[in-house]
Simulated assay, not measured.
Amino acid sequence: MSDIRVRVLEQDEWPIYREVRLRALRESPEAFVASAEEEAEFEDSVWEERMARSRRILAQDGDEVIGVVSVGTGHRTKIAGAGELFGLWVEASRRGSGVARRLMEKAAKVGREVGLRQLLYWVGTDNGRAVAFASSFGFRPTDERRPMRIRGVDDDDADAEELMMVYPLGDTGGVPTSL
């Protein structure tokens, strides 16, 4: 685990992000509200724009990319001072080894550096492992829910939903402001 490096991608490294994002969508389609087939068709300009609006954090073992997470800096939420953590993925063989925790630690550091007061994380209510992991890191559930549709996996599952969890980056006490 000591050889694992976690870093923020630069904007011009969008091809690296594209590669790991598509890999994550192919390996774990049930974990995302997108499909690899759809995103593989995106023009380069879409990937460049994605890099401009969110910070992409990579975990690497040497040159091998083994995990990714994104921190949106407020464009997707109407809650003042909140950013959104999303797209967390760790290679299946590395799950449970601390890679996700290292990604989350870096995401929290990035959030603080850009002046966020809290991170919001939408997690599928039926994804017990993700809810437990986020809780162990310090995220707390809220009463906020939204429908979740995973394209290409459960198009007929109208009951799937996500819950919003929140992680304080300052002294908000874990309660999202302005909910």
Rank of each mutant, 00 (worst) to 15 (best):
I4C: 10
I4N: 09
R5A: 10
R7D: 12
L9Y: 02
E10F: 05
Q11I: 04
P15C: 00
Y17Q: 08
Y17T: 04
R21N: 09
R21W: 02
L22Q: 07
A24K: 06
A24Y: 03
L25K: 02
L25R: 08
E27C: 00
E27T: 09
S28F: 07
P29L: 03
A31F: 10
F32S: 11
F32D: 13
F32Y: 12
V33S: 15
A34M: 12
E38V: 03
E39D: 11
F42A: 02
F42R: 06
D44I: 05
S45G: 12
S45K: 11
V46W: 12
E48S: 13
A52K: 12
A52Y: 12
R53V: 08
S54D: 14
R55E: 14
I57S: 06
I57C: 05
I57R: 03
L58I: 01
Q60E: 15
D61S: 03
D63S: 11
E64D: 05
I66L: 00
I66E: 04
G67K: 05
I79G: 06
A80S: 11
A80K: 12
G81W: 14
G83C: 06
E84H: 05
G87N: 08
G87V: 01
G87R: 00
V90W: 01
S93Q: 11
S93K: 11
R94L: 08
R95P: 05
G96V: 03
S97D: 02
A100V: 04
A100F: 04
R101S: 07
E105A: 01
E105G: 01
K106R: 12
A107S: 02
A108S: 11
V110R: 02
V110C: 08
G115N: 10
G115A: 06
L116Q: 04
R117F: 03
Q118N: 08
L120Q: 12
L120V: 07
L120T: 07
Y121T: 07
V123E: 14
G124T: 04
G124W: 11
T125E: 15
T125V: 12
D126A: 10
R129F: 06
A130W: 05
V131E: 15
A134T: 04
S135E: 15
F137A: 00
G138M: 04
G138F: 01
F139I: 03
F139L: 02
R140D: 01
P141C: 00
D143W: 09
R145V: 11
R146H: 13
P147T: 10
M148G: 13
I150Y: 15
I150N: 15
G152L: 15
A160F: 14
L163D: 13
M164L: 03
V166N: 12
L169Q: 00
G170Q: 06
T172R: 09
V175E: 12
T177P: 11
